[in-house]
Amino acid sequence: MNHFPHGWGRPRDDIYGPYDHTYLSHSQSSGPNQHTQQPAVTGTSVLAAKFKDGVVIAADNLASYGSLARFTDVKRLHKFGEHAILGIGGDVSDMQYISRILNELDIDENYGSTGNTLNAKNLHTYLSKVMYARRTKINPLWNAILVAGLDGVGRPFLSSVDLLGTTFSSPTLATGYGSYLAQPLLRKLAETEDEVANVTREKAEKAVREALKVLFYRDARSLDRFSIAVVTKQGIELMEDEQLEGQSWAFADRIKGYGTQVN
């Protein structure tokens, strides 16, 4: 009798040898192996920051296929209703699927006599349940999403959800590489929800544009063309095909150790 519970129900080591765990998890041919997947065509970071009257959100126009810059005119910000917008990173076909289910949701909402009254908070709750349900089926939508807009009482709202259904909210947010490179910079705007009251639209928009530039310098799968949107009580102002301005590649001279300057 094996007295260690983890041994129960398994072939006995003294007869069959130690159990080879790798066999099951690596076999392709034997047994059902549904949905094992990885993203194919992907978008990189999405950035967003709250300010006192609303939210700024931005994402570049690139869809990469591995290291190939596959599509360079991809719009990754999607409007929903009058006061909500989402930015999507990760798999582009899954992004298109999300865009379609939200389109359908918008049509259905408008069948009611009050029109589409879902706010950004409602949209985030809905999306997080979609994402969590799909991960639970081991068939995830391979995305990281930021939802920006206004909540039910007209306050700025910003929250994220990823392929696991994990949700979190913060005065500033960034997905993908942006979470390492941009988020620390954006946090200088507002560390806490209370500090958001001191942030103007101009400050927030400038910080997001600057952070995008840093990402373009350092994230090889990013682009200098992007969409940026500002959501306030007045509605959504979506600017597409924006160009990064004031780039300076002077620092590139001094990068050594690889590329053309090996030593």
């Binding site: 790798t22 998890s25 690596h26 094992t36 997947q37 696991l164």
Partner: peptide
């Protein structure tokens, strides 16, 4: 994994 050779990346739901 101690398996030599190809390492397959699988989705982890956790």
């Amino acid at each position: 994994s101690s398996a030599p050779g190809i390492q397959e990346h699988r989705f982890s739901p956790y």
